[in-house]
Design a protein around this nucleic acid. Structure first.
Length: 552
RNA sequence: UGACCGAUGGUGUAACGGUAGCACAGAAGUUUUUGGUGCUUUUAGUUGAGGUUCGAAUCCUUGUCGGUCAACCA
């Protein structure tokens, strides 16, 4: 078998296969895809998958991708969303060939509607919303023809023009395609093409009081732009028949629709409607709350575009509904962050350690990233008094536990081996400080002590450490698929998804942390500066923990 | 009791009539100045029943299960 030039080692997904075949058959010279968000919410992981697919296949096969806002319902849409969507796509690392709006085509769409009326393929219907629903039939029962179905072309033309002119009230009249009220496909039972809405549109202002429905906007927009492959999600499968019918009747460029399964992730929800509820009802602190599966939320949390793209790649493209495990996203995040994150030491829950044989502070240079030879080093000062994690000291010695205990030697990362000599206690029997002696010839990188230690601890200088706030996140929901449970999805919100550690002690270089860098706090996980962080109050979001085989 | 779509380890995805593979998750070992990383090993799968074929995850029939469709949303 001959391999095409576009083929890499891994097999093509079914969309790529279709494109590959079309190109080989000479059906198209080059392909054009589009990403068509409605600007009524922030983009989430599901959109990221669609973006990766649409922009990805175009890039792979030497084509282009348009960004098109599907803004045919002015009631829900807003420029705030238009801006955030563009920012998110760019951040993810993709470039569109053009930015278009379905609203750019309102004039053309109107002309198309007139054409359909003239051909006898559309009519103005006076039925109310309820009446239409009633006459539509059910999936197992045919619908009935509207009494207005056989109006003359002249009357339809006149009525439609008057709809546009604003002579009728909202809901009073609609334009419907004349297809087949007995079709087993409910969407083919004379679908609505236009409805009256006296709403201000974010782009066209008050020019229009009639707006096209999805079915009379999306496929037509695709066609106008000469989109070759219009890729959408599974719920649009039944719309394909309408899509093809309208394009055929109009005799316009035959874009083709292909459907794939949307990407879901467990323990969260992936619908703009539900995410909007979480925002509006303050279950989270906005669309970009680091717990949200939105692109902006993931960005704020410290997940990288590379990780998201990798996740989408690994999650794959298929035709069946699926829920991916969050652990796959965590894996992709760790995989990338391990390579780029600067290593730092931060003590979350401190206990004081006094190095009794150390009088003068010692200056150390510790590697920024053991995975990066060119990563350089940062300056850290070892002082007589330091903090370690309270959890890293145990009073009762245990085997196979790599912690500090009286009489035992242990390595302080990047510094020296210390031997714990004794502890000083408070009146209530709690430990006030731990005393250790350090071994001068055991300096990191130049250890001549010959002492074998089990374990290495992170630490900060008590004198130089800076206070930082740490925000740790857990899954947003207590169940894998909240939408699949009894009752409201919000009943399954994990109340403990945010854990704030207001006073952690960080090594001083973290004072200069910016959004440019991702960090790994040794033995803790990956962290990223929160966008609200200031010099006075430094805040870090936990992106993801380190993989931990031991605690299990 | 309609139409359409789908069904491969716990999860996701390959195999295009010819050895069921990969990744994540899980387990074990190894390395390690992060209980991180790396490396090695390993557990586990074709929805049931028929049929076609030398040979079926793949083709056919049928059952079962899951999803979608009755918004003037997209």
């Amino acid at each position: 078998m001959e391999k095409s030039a576009t083929e890499e080692n891994k097999p093509l997904n079914f969309i790529e296969e279709i494109i590959d075949n079309d190109l080989k058959a000479g059906k198209y010279e080059s392909i054009l895809t589009r990403f068509p968000p409605e600007p009524n919410g922030y983009l989430h992981m599901g959109h990221a998958a669609s973006i990766c697919l649409n922009f990805g296949v175009a890039k792979k096969f030497g084509g282009k991708t348009n960004l098109r806002f599907d803004d045919t319902n002015p009631v829900a849409e807003d420029v705030e969303y238009v801006n955030s969507i563009q920012e998110d796509i760019k951040w993810l690392g993709f470039e569109w060939a053009n930015v278009f709006y379905a609203s750019d085509y309102f004039d053309t769409l109107y002309d198309y509607a007139v054409q359909l009326i003239k051909q006898g393929d559309a009519y103005v219907c006076d039925l109310t919303s309820e009446e239409i629903a009633q006459q539509k039939g059910t999936p197992t029962e045919a619908g009935k023809n509207s009494p207005y179905r056989n109006r003359s072309v002249e009357e339809n033309l006149d009525l439609f023009a008057r709809m546009k002119a604003g002579e009728f009230k909202e809901g009073e009249k609609t334009l419907r395609a004349k297809i087949d009220m007995t079709s087993p496909n409910m969407l083919m039972r004379d679908p609505l093409l236009y409805r009256i809405k006296f709403a201000h549109h974010h782009r066209t202002g008050d020019k229009w009081c009639i707006y096209p429905m999805y079915d009379f906007a999306h496929g037509q927009s695709d066609s106008i732009e000469k989109i070759t492959h219009s890729i959408c999600t599974l719920e649009f499968v039944p719309h394909r028949e309408v899509y093809d019918w309208l394009i055929a009747k109009l005799g316009i460029y035959p874009s083709k629709q292909y459907e794939f399964a949307r990407v879901n992730v467990n323990y969260t929800v992936m619908s703009k409607r539900k995410l909007l509820q979480l925002v509006n009802e303050k279950h989270v602190n906005g669309w970009d709350d680091p717990r949200m599966p939105t692109i902006s939320g993931m960005r704020r949390r410290g997940i990288t575009p590379t990780a998201i793209r990798q996740f989408c790649e690994k999650a794959g493209i298929a035709k069946r509904e699926k829920i991916n495990e969050f652990s796959l996203l965590e894996f992709c995040t760790r995989e990338h962050l391990n390579k780029i994150a600067l290593r730092r030491m931060v003590v979350f829950n401190p206990i004081k350690v006094v190095i009794t044989n150390l009088e003068n502070e010692i200056s150390l240079d510790i590697e920024n990233n053991p995975e990066d030879e060119n990563g350089g080093k940062r300056h850290v000062i070892f002082t007589k008094e330091i903090f370690i994690e309270k959890d890293d000291f145990v009073e009762t010695p245990q085997k196979k536990i790599f912690k500090m205990e009286v009489g035992k030697a242990i390595r302080l990362k990047g510094a020296f081996i210390v031997t714990c000599t004794n502890v000083v206690k408070n009146e209530d029997d709690t430990i006030s400080e731990i005393h250790c002696t350090y071994h001068e010839n055991s300096k990191s990188g130049n250890d001549k002590s010959g002492i074998k230690v089990q374990g290495t601890l992170h630490w900060v200088s008590a004198q130089y450490a800076i206070p930082v706030e740490i925000r740790e996140y857990d899954r947003l929901f207590k169940v894998e698929n909240p939408s699949d449970e009894e009752g409201d999805f919000k009943d399954y919100i994990n109340e403990n998804s945010l854990n704030v550690i207001p006073n952690a002690y960080a090594e001083p270089v973290l004072q200069q942390a910016t959004l440019e860098h991702h960090f790994q706090f040794l033995r803790k996980g990956y962290f990223y500066l929160d966008k609200t962080s200031t010099a006075e109050k430094i805040i870090f979001n936990k992106t993801v923990g380190l993989k931990d085989n031991w605690s299990k």
